[in-house]
Write a protein that binds this DNA or RNA. Sequence first.
RNA 1: GGUCCGUUCGUCUAGGGGUUAGGACGCCUGGUUUUCAUCCAGGUAACAGGGGUUCGAAUCCCCUACGGACUGCCA
Length: 510
Amino acid sequence: MTDVRVRFAPSPTGPLHIGGVRTALYNYLFAKKMGGTMILRIEDTDQTRYVPGAEDYIIESLDWIGIKSEENPVVGGPYGPYRQSERKAMYGEYAQKLIDEGNAYYAFDTPEELDAMRERLKAGGVHTPQYNGLVRQQMKNSLTLPADEVKAMIDGGEPYVVRLKVPLKDEIRLQDMVRDWVHVHSNTIDDKILLKSDGMPTYHLANVVDDHLMKITHVIRGEEWLPSAPLHVLLYRFLGWEDTMPQFAHLPLLLKPDGNGKLSKRDADKHGFPLYPMQWTDPKEGTVASGFRESGYLPEALLNFLAFLGWNPGTEQELFTFDELVDSFSIDRIQKGGAKFDIQKAQWYNQQYLKQLSNAELGQLLLEQLKTEGIEASPEKAEAIANNMKERITYTSDLWTEAKYFHIAPIEYDEKTVRKKWNETAVNGLKAFTSALASEGDLTPERAKEVFSKTLEDAGLGFGKVMPALRISLTGQAGGPDLMEIMAILGREEVIQRIETAITRLQENV
RNA sequence: GGUCCGUUCGUCUAGGGGUUAGGACGCCUGGUUUUCAUCCAGGUAACAGGGGUUCGAAUCCCCUACGGACUGCCA
């Protein structure tokens, strides 16, 4: 078998949708599994929808999540260029071939004339007006106009498009790797535009020409392309490439968490989760859309989660390293039905991957965040905090947001705990503890525990009487890591000070 | 409307004629923990409906219902 070559071909019209990331992932997994090549091709044939920065965003996103391509617009490759706008000259040749062989034709209808045609047909009871075998005979094109007139129009600079001449009666069959045989009758396909009046190809032509020229062996893409797949088969046939036509695999859609339908930005906002791999700032509106990266997701976790949305290895293993994913991946285990996007599962994956990180790695992540907050901390301290927080975080950002008290003394105290646990007994215990601490040196968790136990023992108090008050004084919160550990990280003097501050500020609650 | 695709616990899914229909997330209960979380144990919950085929259908066939995608000089 020839070497497997797959491509991910996004259009630079904005940030990369998470569904696109999954498509890229499946392509990548398949390529790695087969020892093949992954190609990134930018489909920028629609100049009106071009968004500055989108291409860089796509490349950076794929890089962040760990999807690497061997051939792409940045490093190039043997079948470049990898940006369709730069391949513009190539498409005309094939459009011409189609015209010459009677499989395509010129059309001169203006947008207004097309609208009028659609209106006319709708009025006549046709729900979906098509530019098809019947309609084309009543329109302005090289099939209805005399040859010399056509030539004159083209020479005279009259704008035109090239349309595919879809056969009237033909059954088109294709074997999809996910769905098996799909057949469609040609009379349900209309004469799609191949070359636009600006000379750029549409997706249909560009994708077929490029996939052929780039020797793509497998086209793995979203289900939204299934209806136009027969059209692409027709193109391969007319271009004489049917025997080297790539195999198709149409992936199930990512659906909204509730109800039905394609996952959209609206759903993501409604449920408060990101839709894009990285944060995206719209260059025109200036609006900011959140990203998984900035929300504290680990790329490995997101990858694992995404891999399981529409595919599974058939075993009971849930956590997979990238290599394991490659190892077990196969297209015939891809699901046919759409998968609802369940952010809770993504959170669980993130938690699992977070727990697997070393304290040093986690500490480093915390340090990065502290830097953006303008807070200084030693790597040792960050590591110690990470060690105590790793069992209770969902996002990397929780290292900071859930444990600010390691860096800043509490400003507020959990109201419920104060009401129930802050009383004279507790305050007395706290006071005894600070005096005991006064004569201590550096605190270790062990030493802190010894002093605390001894103090309570001498005062004849139980742990439960004082502990909650101590926690409140130190952290302001009701829950959290082991207090002895917290005290060791905070340091003796800070502990004493926070207790005294709390006693003063909570006086009225005694 | 038309064409195409789909349908197993709330969610992701295992399942290729005979299973107590399995796992994971979530949720609930209990245990561990001086707190929270983790962890451990247990529980809740599904084959869209109807016809066939068969000794026997979640599994094969047909119909219905429901859902989705597509239906642009967008990709």
